[in-house]
Design a protein around this nucleic acid. Sequence first.
DNA 1: CAGTGGTCTAGACCACCGC
DNA 2: CGGTGGTCTAGACCACTGG
Lengths: 253, 253
Amino acid sequence: MDESIFSDPAFPADQPSPGQSRYGWLAASLRARITQGEWVPGTALPAEAALAKEHGVALGTLRQALALLVAQGLLVRQHGRGTFVREGLGGASMLRFFRFATEDGAPGTPQSHILGRQLRLASADEADGLGLPAGASVLQLQRLRSLQGQPCLLEHIVLPLPLFEALAQSDLAAWDDLLYPMYQRVCGATIHRAEDSLGFGLLTAEQASLLRLDAGHPCAQVDRRAFDLAGRCVELRTTLGDAFAFRYTAHVR
Amino acid sequence: MDESIFSDPAFPADQPSPGQSRYGWLAASLRARITQGEWVPGTALPAEAALAKEHGVALGTLRQALALLVAQGLLVRQHGRGTFVREGLGGASMLRFFRFATEDGAPGTPQSHILGRQLRLASADEADGLGLPAGASVLQLQRLRSLQGQPCLLEHIVLPLPLFEALAQSDLAAWDDLLYPMYQRVCGATIHRAEDSLGFGLLTAEQASLLRLDAGHPCAQVDRRAFDLAGRCVELRTTLGDAFAFRYTAHVR
DNA sequence: CAGTGGTCTAGACCACCGC
DNA sequence: CGGTGGTCTAGACCACTGG
């Protein structure tokens, strides 16, 4: 019951490798079929009985495989309905770090203003983080997010090409307020999980003026690496916001 | 497979309540025997087969119950060795938020200096957080933690009485650098999990001088509620440290 | 080697959902 | 109602740990 998350070769062997459990191999096999698009996020897999019969395996064994994928966040099971491929992240998750609130208390979705968009070569760190070869091209975005006209978050985003080619030319006025659903719709890239690294710093004069704060004002900085269904990092993002509005809750065990 | 964490009455019924699964009831039952001290942290439970026979249940069902308690962090299973009650938190977990490092890179355990110890009445918030009746007594500690003689963290700790009575009189010179193992040894209180809330603020002059920083220096503040095996909150703690040394990593899914 | 947990099977029956 | 996942059983066999 401790199959590695990394047991995800793009093409699993036809048989469980020696030392690997049957359900572990089954899970990897199903995982590959999902990341290759056989079952799209939101759709249902065949029923347990059908999958078990297809793979010539007992029901309990198949259920162990599905339980693995549920634990990895790839599937969601609903009693009486079916087994579904999980939808990607919504895109409003950055607000969970900040306690911006509208007057009536509900946070709501922030508006998005793209301040800049450039095609350029990836730095060494960026190529490394995105798993690109040295000298690859990336799309860079600067973005300001506002709640009810009040600027609150400043973002710097780096996306790998050619996956996000479609965003390099499309009309900025037609962009959504939330990027992750747009990544999925326009580029077929599902953001499945992310790693956030939090720290504190001080705003430069330029950053401060965009956020309508004073130069040198304390800010919280969130460095995010976002991953798709196959586990590849497909977005690097740095978000800045007022440190005094920052609040985050964590569970330790 | 979604038994609530809160299915933990001190004394479970003799039979699974209607609508509750057998393994869910079994898990709650075993959980109660653990929190009541029948199996102390670090010790092994009887073997699967023995427990299954004792409860008149099939092996698979018992294993489901154990899997639940493993998922809740109460048990650890080791192939070929046995099933063990998990040890409590080590006590050095606060350092994971900060990137203090000694010269050779290894963080090490910080030294602990108790600056103050008072017996007093709990405030309304404290009584609420610790589940105490209004007007109950608490033990309050102020504490400075240092790495290689360099002050780095300032802590304010509130503990409920009479559970921590033994700490109110014991010789401060004999205290450990880590409190959680000492809680367990001296008071029999096992810290099993904690909830941390992170925020940002500015140091008062008094706080700053203790940390050898300037008054008004930016600081990260971690408000922690720590819970024992039975899920009762038994410690409230506020930790302050240099905001620019603060760094935290989170996973989003 | 004996004792532990891990895997797998084949089947029965229950609980939930949506038509 | 038919189809889905959830629970439970009884048993066989494997893999790991420690003496």
